[in-house]
């Protein structure tokens, strides 16, 4: 079972040096424990482009699809047997990156 852990932020490029060190240490732990699937930090929402090609005429629009005060600044994808394990990983992740995070399950492919 995979879980998306989104990092919630309200400022751009706000990660500090200590936070980066803590995140690296956390990531190493997740990899060692076999929960690691993928992770990444995202550039600020103002760098986003929205594409609409539903009618075959691709239309490009500058900016995020929805303007919000808070946005996804990065994410992890964890492999975990159940939500309790995912929540524990997410709690440690929240501590490491010093941000609130949201856990959301992927649709079960089973």
């Amino acid at each position: 079972m995979q879980y998306l852990v989104s990092v919630i932020d309200d400022k751009s490029n706000s990660g500090t040096e200590e936070e980066m060190v803590a995140i690296d240490a956390f990531n190493a732990g997740v990899q060692a424990a076999g929960h690691w699937v993928f992770a990444g930090g995202l550039a600020s929402p103002s760098t986003a482009t929205v594409i609409d090609n539903r009618d075959g005429q691709a239309l490009f629009t500058d900016g995020p699809f929805v303007e919000t005060k808070e946005y996804m600044a990065g994410f992890w994808v964890f492999e975990a047997p159940d939500l309790d394990v995912a929540l524990r990983l997410a709690a440690d992740g929240s501590r490491a990156c010093n941000r609130r995070v949201e856990v959301r399950p992927f649709l079960d492919p089973a």
Binding site: P81, D82, L83, D84, V103, P105, L107, D108
Partner: peptide, 14 residues
């Protein structure tokens, strides 16, 4: 069901 909340007594630390 979707988030797979486990059906068990929680681990000691929780």
């Amino acid at each position: 069901k979707a988030a797979r909340i486990p059906y068990r007594v929680p681990a000691a630390e929780d």
